[in-house]
């Protein structure tokens, strides 16, 4: 199962190899040309020499993770975050480390041993260590290396009302959507890029845009969703089950209105639900793609993802399928001569 395989694959920013291998296997039968660039983004082309609007779809392969930066005398591992991680969500989580995907746990001082005033304070990153079962520094050095990347050990599972949880829906859910889109026959010169290092500053997408020089670009993301508890409408960003979310403004992009209206019109005609992404926080690869060279017409479509950047992220499978339906309809519309600016 694609979502399971992709979300369980190991790929923090800068160490996306396993995800890339997996995607390459998936897309080779579906594409005319598959290549990588200097940073490691995977670029998949269909009909590269065809006439028509050159469309780029992009989803990032990387996930937030950790890096081992030191080993204590007692064999515990010190680490730092790769991408934005809130230290409060790390305590008492299993992780996997390095090339051998070795298990470890992030432990914490038991509550029995804490002073009352300690109990109200969040653990700081420096207080947290990974325990791999080694007793000494030497023993640990035989099992892991300084510099090894680390990811959460969460497994993909479906639960509740059409929900799924996994560690890296941000943005493997986008990667899965793009693989599904590649399965659809098209005559357009279509490029699908699986980018690297989005989580450490939108690094991979710029070189991809410069290389592929598309007329239109669409970024597919797993985005912030907080439609839970007592959050008010303007504090939720997106709601689960309400359809793919169209970006308006975020930290790096003011989205092109005409392109958004075009996507909305396709959704409405196909009776696919959609919603606005209702927050200006965060950013995605659109931030660098739309400013590449002389400027590229860009839109971002996102799958609402609860608890992003945490070990167990949650999506609604209807949103996933509706995103595939919507983008697939957008491709068909462009194929038939539709264009956001017309």
């Amino acid at each position: 199962m694609l979502l399971k395989a992709l979300t369980e694959a190991f790929g923090p920013s800068g160490f996306e190899d396993e995800v890339r291998h997996l995607l390459r296997e998936e897309v080779i039968p579906l594409a005319d040309r598959v290549s990588t660039d200097a940073l490691g983004s995977l670029i998949v082309e269909k009909n590269p020499d065809a006439e028509g609007s050159r469309v780029l779809f992009a989803a990032h392969m990387d996930e937030v993770g950790l890096m081992v930066v030191g080993i204590e005398d007692n064999g515990l591992l010190r680490f730092r975050p790769l991408g934005g991680v809130d230290p409060r969500i790390l305590v008492a989580k299993p992780v996997r480390i390095g090339a051998e995907r070795r298990y470890g746990v992030i432990g914490a001082k038991a509550i029995h041993l804490q002073q009352p005033e300690e109990r109200t304070k969040p653990f700081e990153m420096q207080q947290l260590l990974i325990d791999i079962g080694a007793n000494t520094r030497e023993e640990a050095e035989r099992l892991v290396e300084i510099g090894d990347p680390v990811v959460f050990a969460t497994e993909y599972e479906e639960f509740g009302d059409r929900r799924a949880k996994a560690k890296s829906f941000d943005d493997r859910v986008g990667c899965a959507v793009l693989v599904e889109l590649l399965k659809q026959p098209t005559t357009l010169p279509l490029t699908v890029a699986f980018t690297v290092q989005e989580e450490t500053g939108l690094r991979g997408a710029g070189p991809v845009a410069y290389r592929t020089k598309p007329d239109l670009a669409m970024v597919v993301e797993g985005t912030v969703c907080f439609d839970v508890g007592e959050a008010k409408s303007h504090e939720q960003s997106t709601a689960q089950g309400a359809g793919p979310a169209l970006s308006v403004v975020d930290g790096k992009t003011i989205a092109n209105t005409k392109f958004r209206e075009f996507i909305k019109s396709v959704a409405d005609e196909e009776a696919i639900p959609w919603q606005y992404r209702r927050t200006v926080g965060g950013a995605n690869d659109a931030g660098v793609i739309h400013l590449s060279e002389m400027g590229i017409l860009t839109a971002a479509v996102s799958i609402p993802t609860r608890y992003i950047h945490a070990p167990a992220q949650v999506i609604h499978l209807d949103d996933y399928h509706n995103t595939i339906r919507l983008l697939s309809a957008v491709i068909e519309r462009i194929e038939k001569g539709g264009h956001p600016i017309s």
């Binding site: 790769l82 450490t200 690094r203």
Partner: peptide, 19 residues
């Protein structure tokens, strides 16, 4: 070891043009 920005020319060099 770095987990992102190195604070050097390397950061900008990596993403020039096609990377």
């Amino acid at each position: 070891l770095s987990q992102g920005a190195t604070g050097t020319d390397a950061d900008t060099l990596q993403v020039v043009a096609m990377g």
